[in-house]
């Protein structure tokens, strides 16, 4: 479903010069699987996901999503994709219903089909109480539900989440993760990026650990344990970083 091959992206910055944000990154993600991208801030997670979402162009390598190349067929890639990040926002002066309608229309849906899809999403995410209230008046938990519904409007086969729980309270974060797990069960291919280890452990089938744009290790929890000889994800992470700082003795 997602196939990333030797992907690189270089930024130019007047102060820092050339930045290799993503450096020869390769991984895949199948339908019905949650792939976790784990890395510290500045590791290149967002850049990778933005390339996959056709927001940025790669400097080298290829990326494929639902069988479509991100450079050659960006429109088809976008049509197959639901994208949600901690920075994606809602239109403050529109209501959830209007937002869903707008994104539905953009995805080429219309009429009764669109209406029933919106109603289904509103019911599924319990939005109906505030479906006609302008988004600027909603709480962050409510907004998050609307955002997820928005990303799912055209029922895309691939979902990309970029640190979706940043800035949410515990309840909203838990609800978000529950929804993601539910959609995995429905056979979606899901890419989930975060720097929070507990989320990865709870959610992901396989984990790719990246640091400074390069892939450090990839595999299931078991495979990573074998590779590093460490038991807990935190220890695995630090041993891969090569920092040797293990604070995880008192971990669960």
């Amino acid at each position: 479903m997602i196939r990333v091959n030797n992907l690189s992206r270089i930024f130019f910055d007047s102060q820092r010069g050339e930045i290799k944000a993503v450096d020869s990154l390769s991984f895949t993600c199948q339908a019905g699987e949650i792939m976790g991208l784990l890395g510290p801030n500045g590791a290149g997670k967002t850049t990778t996901l933005r390339i996959l979402a056709t927001l940025l162009s790669p400097s080298g390598g290829t990326a494929e999503l639902n069988g479509f190349d991100v450079i050659k067929e960006p429109d088809k890639v976008r049509a197959s994709l639901g994208f949600l990040s901690s920075t994606t926002g809602l239109y403050p002066r529109l209501t959830p219903e209007e937002i869903l309608k707008f994104f539905g229309e953009i995805n080429g849906m219309k009429g009764a089909g669109l209406k029933s899809r919106i109603d289904a999403l509103i019911a599924e995410f319990n939005i109906s109480d505030y479906a006609r209230v302008r988004c600027e008046k909603l709480s962050s938990g409510m907004k998050q539900k609307v955002s997820i519904a928005r990303a799912l409007i055209q029922d895309p086969p691939v979902l990309i989440f970029d640190e979706p729980t940043v800035g949410l309270d515990v309840i909203a974060a838990a609800q978000t993760m529950k929804a993601i797990l539910e959609y995995k069960k429905r056979g979606k291919c899901i890419l989930y990026s975060t720097h929070i280890m507990s989320e990865v452990e709870k959610l992901c089938d396989r984990i790719a650990i990246i640091h400074k744009g390069t892939l450090q290790a990839i595999g299931t929890m078991e495979e990573l344990r074998e590779q590093t000889g460490e038991r807990y994800l935190e220890d695995i992470f630090f041993s891969l970083m090569g920092t040797g700082t293990t604070f995880a003795e008192n971990g669960s």
């Binding site: 429109d75 990040s85 920075t87 994606t88 926002g89 239109y91 953009i106």
Partner: peptide, 14 residues
């Protein structure tokens, strides 16, 4: 600033 452009640009719209 509100992060709304991102969502629009990842939608299948020209």
């Amino acid at each position: 600033e509100r992060g709304c452009f991102e969502t629009l640009l990842v939608s299948p719209i020209n």
